[in-house]
Amino acid sequence: MRKLGGILGLMVLFGVCTFGAPFRVAVILPSTINDFAWSQSMYEALVAIQEEMGEDNFQFVYSENMYVIADAAAAIRDYATQGYNLIIAHGSQYGSSLVDIAPDFPKTSFVWGSTAQTFTELGIHNIFAYAPHAEEGGYVNGVIAALLTKTGVIGGIGPIKTGDAKRYAAGFEKGIKDTRPEVQVNYTFIGSYSDVALASEAARTFVNAGADVLTGTAQMTVGAISVAKEKGIFWLGYDVDQSPLAPTTVVASIVVDWTVALKPIIGMIQEGKRGGEILPLTFANGGLKLAFNEAALEGKLSPIEIIELKATVWETVRKIVSGEITIEVE
């Protein structure tokens, strides 16, 4: 009898354990976790969630540098087989793989982005999507750039003209035009996420053309930031806070906080919902944050100018949040 009680006790304990099993996440990243851009921002979000929920309740694994789509698909399938609760395919290029894989694992949830597609129209109900509104971030940086430039020439450097890069660029140009229409802004795309040398040369050419504020997205822009630092001009960043890279150069960074999408997704999964939702990341919901680095302006602008600049910028953010400013991307 006592033995039976012991077994029962064990079973209860086991049951509790299963119930309280950690939430397991696997993430597929197209570049490295230290790229100072897209992949790093996601990695940092997962670390933040783990710190908040505790290692007993939240565990994650990652596959980095998954730029080969077929390999990423194999990784996604493998993680799904291993019973992870949530698999994050952190790249818009992974979407078509998810359409193939997700139906085979109805109990697993998947999430991908940047996109506004969850494929419910195909009868798939276990895919979430996240969509950072890069154009909002671009717009705010555009306003900052317009207020900072003295020469009236501003440059932007992007990888290829698609997805978030395209949306950011469109917002950036609009932010400038809405603030100071006379300012000249050009955006160049260097056709690569890794060609640091060409990004750097594009930055130098902008400087030659008179630009005194530059911006850009994706990991190869570190080359351009380095040039901005050398030339003593301003840089406006995206994805992560890039000011540690060049504290006197990076005036502001639009930080994408993926936890704003991931936490609700985790919540929904724990409540039994598997997918079908699109989670935007905007200034309104805190998914986009402005990391303003005042130190970069000290000595270059008067304290009053800095205060005025900040006021205008935060006012812009407020107007985006309230919907007074809307940004269309064609």
């Binding site: 080969v68 789509i69 077929a70 390999d71 290029q93 078509s96 990888p159 996420y193």
Partner: peptide, 18 residues
């Protein structure tokens, strides 16, 4: 046989895997 569509990540590698 595999992808059922064409896509790019800026390089050929994403598709060809080298």
């Amino acid at each position: 046989g595999v992808h059922h569509r064409m896509f790019t990540d800026g390089t050929a590698f994403g598709f060809t895997g080298g």
